Computed example of a mutant assay.
Amino acid sequence: MRRFTRISRRRKAIALGAGISLASLVGGVAVVTLSPIMSLTTIEVTGASRLDPQRVVDALDEHRGTPLAFLSDDEIAADLADFTLVRSFATEIVPPNTLIVRIVERAPIGALETANGVELVDAAGVVIEVTDAIPDGVPLIQLPSDDAEGVAFGAVADVLIAVPREVVARIRTVSASTRDDVTFELRDSAHIVIWGDAERSAQKTRVLDAAIAATDQAVRWTYDVSAPDSLVVRDAG
């Protein structure tokens, strides 16, 4: 009986000690987590070039003093929703009191001439900037209408994303009326390039380069690489 009692008391003591330790641990974590020492005081913004980083910091200022554990990406996303230049973002918490917001900005793929001026747009048709002139290296997008949400714009956007940047820089104008009839005029030579759709863009680029190298550059040509296995070259006049 004495032995059984000693064992029972020992088990109760161990259980009580474990409970106290667990409670202390949970309490300690709660105190540290909710302590002002672990609350947000510093906001850093990286990746912003067109967008003023200080504007982002100001938009997130209401979160200062919030315990780091309670910071919400959903709430931060809501605060950044008004910044059209922000394509996406990621956050990093650096204890004891810092939040780093890494911004990925929208990048223009081309320009649209509208009644409002020259609109630089990204692949989603979002207007990034309105300027008086088309910047160097930015192609002018010519569509049946100024609709940046239509099929023709989507086709142009897909192609401009797929082709190498050095090719995009050589394009003066790009046009389309359907999903598979994207056509370029090259900036330096006025050659016409019938590209088709965005499929097999790497092969089309190689075929175009070889065709240009093999033809008389004193003549204005039309290069049809829409079916890259069957290149067609004709005098554009």
Rank of each mutant, 00 (worst) to 15 (best):
A176R: 03
G19Y: 08
L51A: 09
A124G: 11
R206E: 15
E113N: 12
D224E: 01
D74A: 11
I100Q: 07
A236L: 09
F4A: 13
T205S: 12
Q217P: 04
V104S: 13
T178L: 13
Q142N: 05
D180R: 11
G150Y: 04
A214T: 10
R2E: 12
I37L: 15
V159L: 09
Y223G: 00
L34H: 09
L112N: 02
G17R: 06
S21A: 15
E105T: 08
V167D: 09
S230L: 07
N97I: 01
A227N: 09
D181G: 02
V233G: 00
R64Q: 14
G47I: 07
P95D: 09
A152V: 05
S226K: 01
A13G: 03
D74Q: 06
A148N: 11
A162S: 13
I192Q: 11
P135C: 02
A148M: 06
G154I: 02
E129M: 07
D73N: 11
V138T: 12
T84V: 14
A236M: 07
A176G: 01
D79Q: 12
V174S: 04
V101S: 07
V130P: 04
F70M: 11
P135Y: 01
F184R: 06
R187Q: 14
P164E: 08
A18D: 03
G17I: 04
A190M: 12
V57G: 03
F70S: 07
E166K: 11
A107T: 15
D122R: 01
F70V: 10
V151D: 13
S8N: 09
A198L: 04
E92D: 10
D235A: 12
A218M: 03
T178Q: 11
G47V: 05
R187P: 04
A157R: 00
V29K: 03
G117S: 09
I100L: 13
R3F: 11
G196P: 08
I14F: 09
L16T: 10
D58K: 10
L71I: 13
S88D: 15
R220N: 04
A190Q: 14
L208N: 00
I93Q: 07
A190K: 14
Q54A: 14
A81E: 15
A176Q: 03
F89G: 05
K12E: 11
G125E: 06
L51N: 05
P139K: 01
T91V: 11
D122F: 01
L186K: 11
G237L: 13
V193P: 01
S24L: 15
V126M: 10
L60S: 06
R172Q: 14
V57L: 08
A176F: 02
A81Q: 12
I141C: 01
S88E: 13
F70A: 13
R220H: 05
F89E: 08
A202K: 08
G65R: 09
V207D: 00
F70Y: 07
F70C: 02
F83W: 06
F89I: 10
M38F: 15
A169F: 13
F83Q: 01
A81N: 10
L80R: 08
V31T: 14
L143N: 02
I93S: 03
A213H: 06
D61K: 14
